[in-house]
Design a protein around this nucleic acid. Structure first.
Lengths: 99, 99
DNA sequence: CAATTTGTTCGTATTTTTGCGAACAACGAA
DNA sequence: TTCGTTGTTCGCAAAAATACGAACAAATTG
């Protein structure tokens, strides 16, 4: 029975921060923050990376809980996961003493 | 002459986020956010990692510009780098639409 | 049905991150 | 000077992240 050193909040903040720790993913989240939804193709056009690489970045954002995908065949519409985005907001707000 | 896809702001935000992408480093920044300064020994006592590992995490926070060390022989006093902490605050504030 | 569009998964390679202990360096104290 | 304290650096190992193209899957279009 080992004492846990880090709180759930610290671990979740680290997960969110890590997900934002790459320019491609910052780019995506900035876009989604502005327009709430987008298609993978929109991203692919503007980013200088292979589509398989983009797919991986989207997967990471998804598994960190920051975005979610919705099938609109044959495309996929990506949106912010509002619930977790709000959590991230609060975590960073507290850490950075915003307001 | 290749077109640069990412803005400096995006890259800097990614660097800050990446630096916060580990529970140990979140722990350190939370502590420094509360009390503004601390000694490496304070951290070492409470964290379940080798001192060499802690040293590396501090190095990363330093090279991301989030903290700075001041020698108070034989110890080192670590403080938040206020200028960059403020920058990080603003970056996250904008991204997360805080306020 | 065949062809096209859209995006994921697989296999691979490279680089970076994380972590440890041992050795080392710098300093104050005895 | 010798000892202890403090912290970094080195050498190593294991794991994770980054990136690509090829192959694949699923759906729409012709």
């Amino acid at each position: 029975m080992k004492k846990e050193v880090f709180s759930e909040n610290q671990k979740q903040l680290a997960r969110f921060a890590k997900a934002l720790g790459h320019p491609v993913r910052v780019y995506i989240m900035e876009l989604l923050s502005r327009q709430s939804c987008c298609y993978s193709g929109d991203l692919s056009e503007n980013l200088p990376i292979a589509k398989s690489t983009l797919s991986q970045h989207l997967k990471e954002l998804k598994s960190a809980g920051l975005i979610q995908g919705e099938i609109e065949a044959p495309k996929i519409k990506y949106c912010i996961n509002r619930e977790n985005w709000e959590k991230a907001r609060n975590h960073f707000k507290i850490l950075l003493k915003i307001e």
